[in-house]
Design a protein around this nucleic acid. Structure first.
Length: 121
DNA sequence: CCGGTGACCATTA
DNA sequence: GTAATGGCCACCG
């Protein structure tokens, strides 16, 4: 087996912490692992995560809540299907009420709501 | 060592 | 509001 780089493993750890019915953005994960700015690398790690079913990559979307990685999934509908199963509504390959389902690995507000908006004031 | 690639993000026009 | 460009970081050959 080829153990993934420490960086990848760190990404997997964060993604695995994502509670069901919640979604997060690559930038948030990157920042959580201390690699702020390496959001692209996070997506790259996700691609390798497909080998690890323990990583719910379908819960990871871009900052606009768009399922940019659906093309890399087995089926284009697979990612959307999974999210809908979690209770998340998808419209035009985009997460509805993305803010509401947004979950920050650092905030870890699995119980409390997340009025926190990634919007820069 | 160097170049190319990528499931991104931010700024500017 | 949308569209286009640059920059950032990490992995692969």
């Amino acid at each position: 087996m080829k153990p993934p780089s420490d960086f990848f493993e760190r990404v997997y750890a964060v993604v695995r912490r994502i509670p069901p019915g919640r979604v997060t953005s690559y930038g948030a994960v990157a920042c959580a692992i201390g690699a702020a700015g390496a959001a692209r690398t996070v997506g790259y790690a996700m691609n390798a995560s497909q080998n690890d079913p323990t990583v719910p990559a379908h819960r990871v979307v871009n900052r606009v809540g768009l399922l940019t990685g659906k093309f890399h999934f087995g089926g284009l509908q697979a990612m959307q299907q999974q999210l809908e199963e979690e209770g998340i509504e998808i419209k035009n390959d985009a997460v509805v009420h993305f803010q509401r389902h947004f979950w920050d690995p650092m905030t870890d507000d699995s119980e409390a709501s997340a009025p926190f908006l990634p919007h820069r004031k």
